[in-house]
């Protein structure tokens, strides 16, 4: 197997019996990539994720992580390798500490009753990384949206996965939290080689941070590659049916996309 491809998805199809079906999906990422999946609402991004995590049964194709076919693993073995930060986080009145410790669940011995010293260290480390150490004893329900998202990410990090999947981790958050989350993931990605794959709506964040972007439309992967190749106005207009212009971030030089209001776009059409 090619050493470069760490996550290798071949002809993956999955979906709902009488409804949405994903067209064969091919994606390969090398170890330590920062992958982004973009596309309109209802384009199949979340369905693809559900196929990856095993929440939906895949109807065809294969998903290999570091050479291991994911569907051949038990849920527990899979959970040791892949962590998911879901789009909708259940609001439960448990403490942040308890929440994050749940991330150790797949690594526990059968009938392990008490937390070990190692687990406590991993807990502290995850809380430190996500900057929520001071919230350790707070109840999850009392936190702000950003703090809740950070807690969910800390839980996924405590899982010590090889691949972390995030479903729209920055939506509904202010730019402070957006940057905090993206910078944290970038740091872990660069320093620890954690492979990241996220569904993201903000095209400019995707352009700024991702090393690989897949654009999905109507259940089909229409283009993938470097942000430079994917974030072109032609691709974006095709996928989103919206008038945009492309530009660059003046500091980082990364591609950026701007929407254009109807007033201007009409003039531009002529």
């Amino acid at each position: 197997m090619d050493k470069k491809t760490y996550l290798n998805i071949e002809n993956l199809t999955c979906g709902y019996r009488e409804g949405f079906m994903l067209k064969p999906f091919n994606l390969s990422l090398s170890k330590g990539s920062f992958g982004g999946i973009i596309g309109g609402n209802g384009s199949g991004k979340s369905t693809f994720f559900k196929g990856l995590t095993g929440e939906l049964k895949i109807t065809g194709g294969s998903v290999r992580l570091d050479g291991t076919e994911l569907s051949s693993l038990t849920l527990r073995e899979r959970a040791k390798r892949v962590a998911l930060v879901p789009q909708f986080i259940e609001k439960s009145p448990i403490t942040v500490e308890e929440y994050v410790l749940m991330g150790r669940m797949p690594h526990r011995r059968a009938f392990q009753f008490l937390e070990t010293k190692e687990e406590q260290e991993i807990l502290e480390n995850s809380l430190e990384l996500t900057g929520i150490m001071h919230l350790k004893r707070c109840r999850f329900t009392e936190l702000s949206g950003g703090e809740q998202q950070m807690t969910a990410i800390a839980c996924a990090l405590a899982q010590k996965p090889q691949l972390i999947l995030l479903d729209e981790p920055t939506s509904h958050l202010d730019i402070t939290y957006q940057s905090r989350i993206m910078n944290l993931l970038q740091r872990l990605n660069e320093e620890e080689g954690l492979t990241v794959l996220m569904i993201i709506h903000d095209l400019n964040l995707a352009g700024e941070y991702c090393s690989h972007i897949s654009l999905v439309k109507e259940g089909e992967l229409i283009i993938q590659g470097d942000p430079e190749e994917v974030l072109r106005y032609k691709n974006i207009e095709r996928a989103y049916d919206t008038v945009v212009v492309e530009s660059r971030n003046p500091v980082s030089g990364k591609p950026a996309i701007f929407q254009v209001s109807e007033r201007f776009s009409k003039r531009y059409d002529r």
């Binding site: 929440e55 899979r78 879901p86 986080i89 259940e90 448990i94 749940m102």
Partner: peptide, 23 residues
Amino acid sequence: YLFTAPLNALRLGESSARSLGIN
């Protein structure tokens, strides 16, 4: 009592519990 761990994981929701390796 043998199911305390899954019950604890279910506090995070069914899909999170699944992604934590609980059937």
